[in-house]
């Protein structure tokens, strides 16, 4: 179980860690599939954005963090919540706006905050989480702590001024921040190439003197290796890093998006790069676990999530008298 694995990109991780990351990715995939079904049946209030396809970036980055470290997520953030340890039943109930949800039904999918696990929240404002994570790093510096903070954002946030402001400040103050762009190719319905100038995305970090790299975000081992390096660098007090994970969202911008702006050929090619297929293959090729055991892991994830759906859907709505609670302390 402990043998080190080598993948094509040269990244290697411990076999037990790969198995654990694979299991978390499976849980995220089938959590999202359950949410998709619930949304299609009308059980989810408002908009919901799924991260199926992007599991390797969620899991590979967070696997390099300690429990005490912070993350800030974005509107496609269920996977980050789960990878950081959120209870899936509470998260599912929150997305359905139920009383038993992690935030009492106030936040829904896009504003889940989980302070107990250092999750500063999914966020309805594109780029909105970036300064929150950088600010947690500023607080760590003021306290003399070596906590590390990860900001997740999509390619849509690459053109928000907030990102560049926070990169500048993180660099001048050597804050323990890892900027992680999950580049899934589209900001809502618009392709990245149509709205993003310049020859180099890593260049956007390099101008601030921030070590920056672009990696295969469909390969959890490559993501983990990049994260390990960036997190260690931050924790040692050297400052921020910037990782661009090229990935793909298997669904649309939100559940119900017909995705007419996507090219079928491109979609087929990315489907073949499914991060779960890749890590399953690596696990069985290295003899970490059998193909049967991997299939059983997937069945377990499907059963775990499917078993929750009915109970959550039939759960209580928040009571009317809670409406005004927690506006102020």
């Amino acid at each position: 179980m402990n043998k080190a694995l080598k993948n094509a990109g040269g990244a290697s991780v411990d076999g037990r860690l790969l198995l654990s990351m694979h299991r978390t990715m499976l849980r995220i995939r089938h959590f999202e599939e359950t949410i998709r079904r619930l949304a299609a049946s009308g059980a989810v209030p408002g908009l919901v954005h799924l991260c199926a396809g992007q599991e390797a970036t969620n899991v590979g980055i967070i696997a390099a963090l300690e429990d005490r470290d912070f993350i800030a997520s974005h509107h496609r953030g269920h996977g980050h919540c789960i990878a950081k340890g959120a209870p899936v039943e509470g998260l599912m109930a929150e997305i359905l706006g139920k009383a038993s949800g992690m935030c009492g039904g106030r936040s829904g999918s896009m504003h889940v905050i989980d302070m107990e696990r250092g999750n500063l929240g999914t966020n309805g404002i594109v780029g909105g989480g970036i300064p929150l994570a950088a600010g947690a790093a500023l607080a760590a510096r003021a306290r003399g702590s070596d906590d590390v903070c990860v900001c997740f954002f999509g390619d849509g946030a690459l053109n928000q001024g907030l990102l560049h402001e926070c990169m500048n400040m993180a660099a001048i103050w050597k804050l323990a921040v890892v900027f992680v762009c999950e580049n899934n190719g589209y900001g809502e319905f618009t392709a990245i190439d149509d709205v993003t100038a310049g020859p180099s995305l890593p260049g956007r970090g390099e101008v601030f003197g921030i070590p920056s790299e672009m990696i295969d975000g469909m390969d959890v081992q490559a993501v983990y290796a990049a994260a390990r390096k960036a997190v260690d660098y931050a924790r040692a007090g050297h400052g921020p890093s910037f990782i661009i994970c090229n990935t793909w969202r298997f669904g649309g911008h939100h559940v119900g998006d017909k995705q007419e702006y996507k090219d079928d050929e491109e979609t087929r090619a990315w489907r073949l790069r499914d991060p779960l297929l890749r890590s399953a293959k690596a696990l069985s090729a290295a003899g970490i676990v059998s193909e049967e055991a991997i299939a059983q892991m997937e069945q377990d994830a499907i059963s775990e999530m499917a078993a929750l759906a009915d109970g959550v859907r039939n759960g209580s709505e928040p009571a009317a008298q809670t409406l005004l609670e927690h506006v102020y302390g």
């Binding site: 912070f70 800030a72 302070m115 500063l120 909105g128 970036i130 300064p131 929150l132 994570a133 950088a134 600010g135 947690a136 790093a137 500023l138 607080a139 760590a140 003021a142 903070c149 001024g161 907030l162 402001e165 926070c166 500048n168 400040m169």
Partner: peptide, 12 residues
């Protein structure tokens, strides 16, 4: 950015 960071610092 700086004000957003102050919020993150307050949250943590």
């Amino acid at each position: 950015g700086a004000f957003g960071m102050a919020i993150g610092a307050a949250m943590s």
